Simulated assay, not measured.
Amino acid sequence: MTSTAKVPRYSPATLERAERAVRCAPFQLKLFTTMRRQSVDIRAIAGSAGVENGYSQQPLPEMAVEQLMLWLIQVGLLRREVDGQGLTSSFRLTPLGHLLVEQWQQGGKLPAANWRDRLYNSLSRWLRLPDWLQPL
Rank of each mutant, 00 (worst) to 15 (best):
R23C: 03
R23V: 02
R23G: 00
R23Y: 03
R23H: 06
C24Y: 03
C24Q: 04
C24T: 11
C24M: 07
A25V: 14
A25Y: 15
A25K: 14
P26W: 06
P26R: 12
P26E: 08
P26L: 05
P26H: 08
F27V: 07
F27C: 02
F27K: 05
L29E: 09
L29W: 04
L29T: 06
K30P: 08
K30N: 12
K30A: 13
K30D: 10
K30F: 04
K30I: 03
K30L: 12
L31M: 01
L31T: 00
L31H: 02
L31N: 01
L31Q: 02
F32W: 01
F32N: 06
T33F: 04
T33E: 08
T33I: 03
T33Q: 04
T34H: 06
M35Q: 15
M35I: 12
M35E: 11
M35C: 13
M35W: 13
M35T: 15
M35R: 10
R36K: 07
R36W: 02
R36S: 14
R36L: 07
R37G: 07
R37S: 05
R37Q: 09
R37V: 12
Q38F: 05
Q38K: 07
Q38C: 05
Q38P: 01
Q38Y: 09
S39E: 05
S39P: 09
S39V: 13
S39G: 15
S39N: 13
V40E: 09
V40W: 08
V40I: 15
V40G: 10
V40F: 13
D41S: 05
I42M: 03
I42H: 05
I42P: 07
R43D: 10
R43Y: 08
R43Q: 10
I45E: 14
I45N: 13
I45Q: 11
I45K: 08
A46W: 00
A46N: 03
G47I: 01
G47V: 03
G47L: 03
S48T: 12
S48R: 15
S48K: 14
S48Q: 15
A49S: 15
A49M: 12
A49F: 14
A49G: 07
A49H: 13
G50Q: 03
G50C: 01
G50S: 07
V51Y: 00
V51N: 05
V51W: 00
V51F: 00
V51S: 01
E52N: 03
E52C: 00
E52S: 04
N53S: 12
N53G: 02
N53M: 14
N53E: 10
N53L: 05
N53I: 09
N53D: 04
G54P: 09
Y55H: 07
Y55K: 05
Y55G: 08
Y55S: 06
Y55L: 10
S56H: 00
S56I: 01
S56E: 06
S56L: 01
S56P: 00
Q57V: 12
Q57A: 04
Q58P: 09
Q58S: 13
Q58Y: 06
Q58R: 13
Q58E: 14
Q58L: 09
P59K: 02
P59S: 11
P59L: 11
L60Y: 12
L60G: 12
L60H: 13
L60C: 06
P61R: 14
P61H: 11
P61C: 07
P61T: 11
E62K: 03
E62S: 00
E62H: 00
E62D: 01
E62P: 02
M63H: 07
M63G: 05
M63N: 11
M63K: 13
